[in-house]
Design a binder for these strands. Structure first.
Lengths: 350, 350
DNA sequence: CTGACTTGTGGTACCGATAACACACGTTGA
DNA sequence: TCAACGTGTGTTATCGGTACCACAAGTCAG
């Protein structure tokens, strides 16, 4: 097993097959008029030399790379992982290669990554942006004429195709549910208003209160980072309130995990002392222990649709106007909200 | 906000700045002898035109891309997700860009992806291969002189740097633990012997039996796919045995989830009727519900070390000989093995 | 029989950058 | 005063492909 002599090029193949590079190129790219005999001679040469055409050269001369980028704030977040897989599958089936980028929810990295993708001359991008502060990065994409689709989050001041969930309606339903269970002081652990989903869920939270004629107590709404640590801290602050909430809504599942830890650390229990609901499911956790009452979003569909809209835009199959797809969320009642417990107690009156 | 005229090139910048393209190139790449005045003129031109150098062209002319690939069988598996994040962080800090590829545990896709990465002229690859059947793909990498590091799994017949866990020792400890709890019939749900980790864990399972003088019953070892569905099916078969096991060891965490479902579906409980242990933790699930007794592997370290070994190899800083790093696993006792329950009963004798 | 058309192939320029060398200027020291 | 050198910049060729046109040979209709 000899090492391939550094860089077999199309010329080497051409020489060995006794044809011009142009003919080799035709064989590689299929179709085109090449006689069967020549074709097989070239194919043999390719095999013998172990030739793999350079995407760099091809991209440069064709002026297109056949590559898309997929940018998310956190691949380790199961929600984004699902989006990524689905989008990649669609892109691959359409013959595109996909570069996956993780911004770690850091603006600086997001900027670098986007710049990098422009440099790579990707033909389009599916991106779950970090927040409204991503605006300059997206503007830059627009300036370069790189088509992009926003998934999960919109960005103020950016017009583009969008696939997102019904954060407002979903939050409204979750909080409504808590209210219907008799809760009057409902905490909300949420991230910065710079993130569209946080903003919308906050509006849903407020709408549900107004609809029920409940007052809005600002001290019940706390800001946090979107991870278990944020949930831990956020719930800590809520529990420290003089008049603490009897139920809490967290902006997503990871925050909920931290919140539960805080409740337990305080010697309390979910849902007995604090009822809990949140957005997004954690598939693996729910299989092991179907506990969290959640507003489940169809993550794969975000990815699938995002990629499809992008492909249509790239191919020019898309309509002129920009499209916004809002996917409904699915309410899953389990233990953490206390509804089942309440039902059981009702069924067996003491 | 005007659209950038299609493709600003180094020539456009040169013209606007009144210099040659070569000088622009010098400015872009820092260092080099360029007068301060010229430099700032060029920089202004770059800014005005919104110029971003093409990586394609640069890669082609420099004959190196500054890009690494990261290939895993399943990004949605939390274990691989952690590896990916860690490896990417290391590579990024070293100034490399990273292309992440998911093979979906399918050989065909793995082959395509590897071919694709050769075409992209990546400078090195960190790969968690699918199984021994990945051998031809890796051979091809070797043939092309693309350095690669195997993580998590080795491949028969492939020599390279490797970072893996102590599957043999870990499995041995897990099974030993079950035996020490009094179990005599211990099931094992595992994937094909073509996967090195499965092979090693099987050897550990057998070693523990031999050390304890227990017989090996082949009917207790069942093959399954490495996901919850596999666990469900595998446990189903074990439960159907006339003389069913009292404890089960599953090859990883996802399989364990399915196995638990099967136990529950049969109207039984873990650990009361069936004790359960497995490899790999699921961070999010364990936070919510610290239930599974696991052999936890330092996933991030797999990624960090894998990337480091690769970078050293690329830079020629690595020693001639190939290195194999075996990372110890960490035994975490929780509820699913029944040890705590046993301890409690012992503490409070009836 | 001839001109138009098809088929298979080659030649040349070019995609956008950089490597390697060339060269026009000071500077400097003997 | 002049050779040797350093500095800043330009020229040319090249990386590995493909687009576009040219062209020879064969086919076909009128």
């Amino acid at each position: 097993m000899r090492l391939v002599p550094p860089n077999v090029t199309i010329k080497d193949v051409a020489t060995l097959a006794g044809v011009s590079p142009m003919t080799v190129s035709r064989v590689i790219n299929g179709g085109e008029r090449v006689s069967g005999e020549t074709r097989s001679r070239v194919e043999r040469a390719i095999g013998d030399l172990g030739y793999v055409p350079s995407r760099l050269a091809r991209g440069l001369s064709r002026q297109k790379t056949g590559t898309l980028a997929l940018i998310v704030p956190d691949v380790a977040n199961p929600f984004f992982t699902l989006i990524v897989r689905a989008a990649e599958a669609v892109a691959r089936r359409a013959g595109y290669r996909v570069i996956l980028c993780d911004t770690w929810s850091e603006l600086v990295i997001e900027r670098e990554v986007i710049e990098e993708m422009i440099a790579h001359r990707v033909e389009g991008i599916v991106i779950a942006p970090i927040s409204d502060r991503s605006r300059p990065h997206l503007r830059r994409l627009a300036r370069f004429g790189v088509p992009f689709v926003l998934v999960d989050r919109t960005v103020n001041g950016i017009k583009s195709d969008v696939v997102c969930g019904d954060s407002l309606g979903g939050a409204n339903s979750l909080v409504e549910h808590l209210i219907s269970l008799g809760h009057r002081r409902i905490g909300f652990i949420v991230e910065s208003d710079q993130v569209s989903t946080a903003r919308d869920r906050r509006r849903g939270y407020e709408a549900a209160h107004r609809a029920a004629g409940l007052p809005l107590d600002p001290s019940l709404v706390v800001d946090a980072t979107v991870d278990p640590a944020g949930g831990l801290a956020g719930m800590g602050r809520l529990l420290a309130l003089g008049d603490r909430p009897t139920a809490v809504f967290t902006v997503n599942n990871l925050v909920a995990l931290g919140a539960i830890e805080a409740v337990r650390a305080a010697g309390l229990a979910v849902p007995d002392d604090i009822a809990l609901v949140c957005f997004d499911d954690i598939e693996y956790a729910s299989r092991l222990y179907p506990f969290l009452t959640v507003m489940e979003q169809p993550a794969e569909t975000f990815g699938t649709l995002g990629a499809q809209l992008l492909l249509e835009r790239i191919d020019g199959r898309a309509p002129e106007r920009l499209r916004t797809v809002v996917l409904p969320a699915h309410f899953v009642v389990r233990e953490s909200c206390g509804a089942r417990q309440a039902a059981r107690q009702q069924a067996v009156p003491s």
